[in-house]
């Protein structure tokens, strides 16, 4: 996972500020919104990642779940996703989560306003 790629997110309108790096410890999850989309940002195995914040199976906020390493578990029916690429590790969910690019720069966590 690239950490900053030399982008200055403050100058680059494509990214949104999420929280300070120190607020997001290992296995922490943080929820934010981009437009009408709910996003969950997490730190797994030292890197920051961002995926859609509502489970692809039934309506539940993934921020209420748990991140263990890179495995994100939903609190309602316990579907597990790989937070790195949104893929389903364990059902009942079938559809992967949408992925957003997350970066760290200048002691802050930023998430891309566009998917992918």
């Amino acid at each position: 996972m690239p950490q900053s790629e030399g982008i200055d997110p403050v100058l680059n309108d494509a990214y949104m500020y999420v929280c300070s790096s120190s607020e997001l410890e290992e296995d922490d999850l943080f929820e934010c919104e981009i437009g009408t989309e709910t996003i969950v940002v997490g730190r797994g195995e030292a890197n920051v990642y961002a995926v859609q914040g509502i489970c692809s199976h039934a309506h539940a906020e993934l921020v209420d779940g748990e991140l263990d390493g890179t495995c994100l578990t939903c609190p309602l029916h316990f579907a597990c996703f790989d937070i790195r690429d949104g893929s389903v590790l364990e059902g009942p969910a079938e559809a992967p989560l949408q992925v957003y690019k997350a970066i760290e720069a200048d002691g802050s966590v930023w998430v891309s306003k566009e998917r992918g």
């Binding site: 539940a60 906020e61 209420d64 578990t73 609190p75 316990f78």
Partner: peptide, 9 residues
């Protein structure tokens, strides 16, 4: 309190 679900389980 959905956040309690996984610890409770």
């Amino acid at each position: 309190q959905p956040k309690n679900a996984l610890p409770v389980r």
